[in-house]
Design a protein around this nucleic acid. Structure first.
Lengths: 225, 225
DNA sequence: TGCGTCGTTGTTGTATACAACAGATCGGAA
DNA sequence: TTCCGATCTGTTGTATACAACAACGACGCA
């Protein structure tokens, strides 16, 4: 219990969202959370505000707090930026990755291969592979920001890996990216990573084009235009 | 007021930091802020936490809350990402800017020209010029994130414009960027913007290289990063 | 039947009080 | 003089209570 309650709640909720136990659009009852953790509303409130700031929750004043449910335009914006950030990570990794970084990337790639027949495990190993590249960029701030955006997009990526054949394609792309980084081919790594991420965005758009028309998304990022 | 106290405080402090009325390293006394705004500690606490989440403040547990004072590695990381984000904005603007966007950019450029002899005014107009480009990228999420990072870096940019000749150079770079966007020259705009931002990062490093040796010598990470 | 209005109810925002913790300071002993 | 420890003080974390507000539903009126 060395960690403040508010942060424990924050991490727990964040994990629940990323792991899919809380799904986009789901309402969160602060009082219930407070009961669950045996605390008052105050630390819960702090946790919810922090999660809202990082984009995982949205608070609709006087209506309730919900797991962020992004509409198509909001998701396209985020995938577009994610592709750029990850691509930048890959590019920097080509310049800066040391032996340890390369080893971590290779280990993660192998773990992906081993998990290719188990979607849930592949999902986790895929996440780790990308994070190994963020780290290899040797820019702590970039790493943090990219991790945050990754967390926001995780609930939406999860579905995609269930498309038949997607895992195999993803694996092939991973190999290509890892090879480019190992060869210090900055342009190649950046391009491969951009494609890898944007494919997910495209796939997602296809998905929602079919299913999406049912439920109305809540505005996520808030654009003042 | 129609705005919650907590948000009023947050905005006020954010402006104070960006405008330079609160300087990096300065301590913030929550009780004093509460007195200033005639409220209790609760909304102040919320405001401070939000500002910490956005990177403008840092809270050292049991020691106090301070305006973020970034060291050289932290600043290099942020400038590096800023260059990438702004460059990406410029690139997207080439693809997506409509007549209104171009007009706003042009207006902002003209305002910069008019303010060239007044550093404070130029500082403000320079900010507006960049923001016009973020907006022209037509990616609301990217715009928000870039604005946030811009706010974090503002206190450090301010000093640079005081270097003799920097304003003139900055203006020339602005013209080049605006021209590239108007001509839909994506690569040219991206490159010009990257250089424009990185020059500021370099300039900053020169600055601290002179002054910084007293406070804390910086060893690694500065090389070619 | 449609619309406007009013009350109810849930949610949020704020105030206040208290407890726990860590840093800092001071004093004493080696 | 230096090191160690205890106390003291300031800061943070949490609990609780209350007030204000807006959304929602029900009711009445046209």
């Amino acid at each position: 219990m060395t960690l403040p309650t508010a942060q424990r709640i924050r991490l727990a909720l964040e994990n629940a969202i990323v792991d899919g136990r809380l799904t986009p659009g789901q309402q969160i009852d602060p009082d219930q959370v407070a009961r669950d953790y045996g605390c008052s509303r105050t630390p819960v409130r702090e946790a919810l505000q922090a999660l809202e700031a990082s984009g995982l929750l949205i608070v609709q004043p006087k209506r309730g707090t919900f797991v962020a449910k992004l509409g198509v335009p909001e998701l396209m914006d985020r995938f577009e930026l994610m592709a750029e950030l990850e691509s930048f990570c890959a590019r920097l990794a080509c310049r800066r990755a040391d032996a340890d970084d390369l080893a971590r990337i290779d280990t993660a790639l192998t773990a992906c291969e081993g998990a290719r027949h188990d979607p849930d495990r592949y999902y986790a190993e895929n996440t780790a592979f990308h994070q190994a590249i963020y780290r290899a960029a040797h820019n702590a701030f970039l790493e943090t920001e990219t991790l945050r955006l990754q967390a926001i997009l995780q609930p939406y990526r999860r579905r995609q890996l269930q498309s038949p054949g997607r895992v195999a394609n993803s694996l092939a792309e991973h190999r290509q990216i890892a090879a480019a980084i190992a060869a210090s081919d900055a342009d190649g790594a950046a391009r491969a990573m951009t494609d890898h991420v944007l494919v997910q965005g495209e796939r997602f758009r296809d998905l929602v084009a079919v299913v999406g028309s049912l439920s109305r998304p809540q505005a996520g990022g808030v654009a003042l235009r």
